[in-house]
């Protein structure tokens, strides 16, 4: 486990703020990336990596007993890069080369990146892969767990539900799906586009244990994660209600910011709100 693997809530809040700052800097450097989709899951990732949830070893991305974490909403998987660098999986200097020629840190994450367990980008693959990890752990008698972070828009993909049914049938209680329910797609609100309705009800009806929480409330997320291992043999789904763009006021809840880059004035405002020193620049 990493040294900071079980920080108190207040320190975790600071960690989530740190993650937002690092992601924002990384994205703004070459103006490539998805900020709002990253920010809606900042607390989710913070809790997984620093909240004493995932068992990991600093500097050892290939440790066989590590918990597996897949960010299946691949457009935002780059939000993991600052964390993986912080865990000494690779040199943090690489973050400055995000999306640049020759760098292994692409807009979409693949398993050439130390700490990235499986490729993501197109949606609907992570849960199936995660079920594969969880099943292999079961077969080999290993006790690592698998966490898959899905987007709510991703839940439109039929393959998600194929895999959900499969995982429930096999009683994969070593598998956790966390749905980043930020309620937005590229073109608008999910409920206006094609209604997702109650995702909690859907996961429950597919045979999963379900927790629904405020996805920015670290204590609530931690309480939901505490159910791992006490679900009577069911896989666990955590529907985390979030705000897309959380942390930058003018991006919050606004679909059009999915992949838009801020003007210099907007960037300055965002940096201020995120607590980044200096109004702008590529420091």
């Amino acid at each position: 486990m990493s040294a900071e693997s079980s920080l108190p809530i207040n320190d975790l809040k600071e960690r989530a703020a740190w993650l937002r700052r690092r992601v924002f800097e990384m994205v703004m450097q070459h103006r490539e990336g998805h900020v709002p989709s990253s920010f809606s899951m900042a607390e989710i990732l913070t809790l997984l990596y620093y909240g004493g949830v995932a068992r990991l070893r600093r500097g050892a991305p290939d440790w066989p007993d590590r918990d597996r974490i897949l960010v299946s909403k691949g457009h935002a998987a780059h939000a993991l890069y600052p964390i993986l660098a912080d865990l000494d999986y690779f040199d943090s200097a690489e973050l400055e080369r995000f999306t640049q020629p020759g760098s292994f840190l692409g807009m979409y994450a693949d398993n050439r990146v130390p700490g990235i367990e499986g490729i993501s980008g197109s949606l609907g693959h992570g849960l199936g892969m995660g079920a594969g990890f969880a099943l292999s752990a079961r077969m080999e008698g290993r006790d690592f767990r698998t966490f898959v972070v899905l987007g709510d828009g991703e839940c439109y993909e039929g393959s998600v539900w194929e895999s959900a049914m499969f995982a429930a049938h096999h009683g994969l209680d070593n598998l956790v799906a966390i749905v980043d329910r930020n309620a937005l797609c590229i073109l608008g609100r999910t409920e206006d586009l094609v209604r997702l309705g109650s995702l909690a009800d859907k996961w429950r009806s597919f045979g999963w244990a379900v927790e629904e929480v405020d996805g920015h409330d670290l204590a609530a997320l931690r309480a939901a994660m505490d159910r791992i291992g006490s679900t009577d043999g069911l896989p666990l789904a955590i529907v985390a209600n979030t705000v897309k763009g959380k942390g930058v006021s003018f991006m919050e809840g606004r679909a059009e910011w999915h992949n838009r880059m801020p003007s210099p004035e907007q960037e300055a405002q965002a940096r201020q709100e995120l607590g980044l020193a200096g109004a702008s620049g590529h420091d």
Partner: peptide, 26 residues
Amino acid sequence: AGQFLHAGISEQNMVDLAAGLALSGK
């Protein structure tokens, strides 16, 4: 028996599942 799985009539799940299993050395 322990080396057989039914994926459901769910070819998409079957392939993604296979990816996870292959990444786990199967």
